[in-house]
Computed example of a mutant assay.
Amino acid sequence: MKLNLSAVIALVCITCIWSYSWIVMKTLLVYIGPFDFAAIRCALGAALLLLVLKLRNRGMKPPPLGTTFIIGVLQTVGMVGFSQWALITGGAGKVAILAYTMPFWVILLAALFLNERLAKLQYWATAIAVCGMILILQPWNNNGSMLASILALLSGFCWGASVIIAKRLYLRTPTDLLSLTTWQMVMGAIVLAVIALFVPSKPIIWHPYLWGGLLYNAVLATAVAWVLWMFILKHLPASVAGLGTLAVPVCSALLSWWLLGERPNGAETAGIICVVLCWRWYW
């Protein structure tokens, strides 16, 4: 199978961008509260995606508003909000691994709501993945990181639920991916801004690193990455693209170990290995 070289390079770039974004999100919490950062990041990202939508002449009319709003609440508010909240006390690599349990939730929710049957191998993969998540969560070890792990899992669940809602929308109504991505982020950013307004948070320290981190996440990790992702989906097989995205949490875990000194203990390492081994069976 001959692969498009430009798309492969784009896949490497997006993996690097998204992997390092978890390190940036973790380290920025010194200067800003999680919901303030999530709201500003998504607002900037939404503005840039609106510009891309306009420049690509896709039309500015949003997809069905009700469904788009639900996807925005799940994918932007839930996925981004819960993961950023989890990073307060959770390690960047560990949170990334648990947030990327999204494929497991997609398979399970699709079986419940889309009548898609699980293959035998996926039943085994789910069982092993659950064991891995228990090892990562370590409910027997009350070390203060349980809340962060649960929040990270909720992030992955919301992400997976948004995929199911989006798939149902695609089945009913022809929908442009860029338009849906843009407008769900616009709506999600508004909800996050309301949450940030009412949730008590520490004062924002407008340090140059904060500006750089916001630009990194809004420009590179949001607008540029999503444009690259659409290019990848167009020119590479879904299985190759899927494996590329699953490299993100692994690289994030390695980067957090290297740059932040977040070394997992034995049980967490075993759990991460279980989850990583199961990912391939879901694509």
Rank of each mutant, 00 (worst) to 15 (best):
M1K: 07
K2P: 09
I9R: 04
L11P: 02
L11Y: 00
V12D: 00
I14M: 11
W22P: 10
I23L: 15
M25Y: 08
T27H: 15
T27W: 12
L29A: 14
Y31L: 12
G33H: 14
G33S: 15
R41A: 05
A43N: 02
L44H: 07
L44K: 08
L44M: 13
L48N: 05
L50H: 05
L51P: 02
V52P: 01
V52W: 12
L53A: 06
K54I: 00
N57Q: 13
G59E: 03
M60N: 08
T67Y: 06
T68C: 14
I71V: 15
V73F: 11
T76E: 02
T76V: 15
G81D: 04
Q84G: 11
L87Y: 08
T89G: 14
L98S: 05
L98C: 05
T101W: 09
M102K: 04
F104R: 06
W105S: 10
A111G: 03
L112W: 06
L112R: 05
L114A: 09
L121M: 06
A125P: 02
V130S: 04
G132F: 08
I136Q: 12
L137V: 15
N141E: 09
S145E: 09
S149T: 10
C158Y: 03
G160Y: 07
S162N: 12
I164H: 08
L169S: 08
L169G: 07
T181H: 00
W183Q: 00
Q184V: 01
M185N: 05
G188M: 03
V194M: 14
S201W: 01
K202S: 10
I204H: 08
Y209V: 01
Y209I: 01
W211S: 04
G213R: 04
Y216V: 11
V219R: 10
W229M: 11
A241V: 02
L243S: 07
T245D: 05
L246I: 03
A253G: 15
W258N: 08
P264N: 09
N265A: 06
A267D: 12
A270S: 10
I272W: 00
C274L: 13
V276M: 15
C278P: 07
Y282K: 14
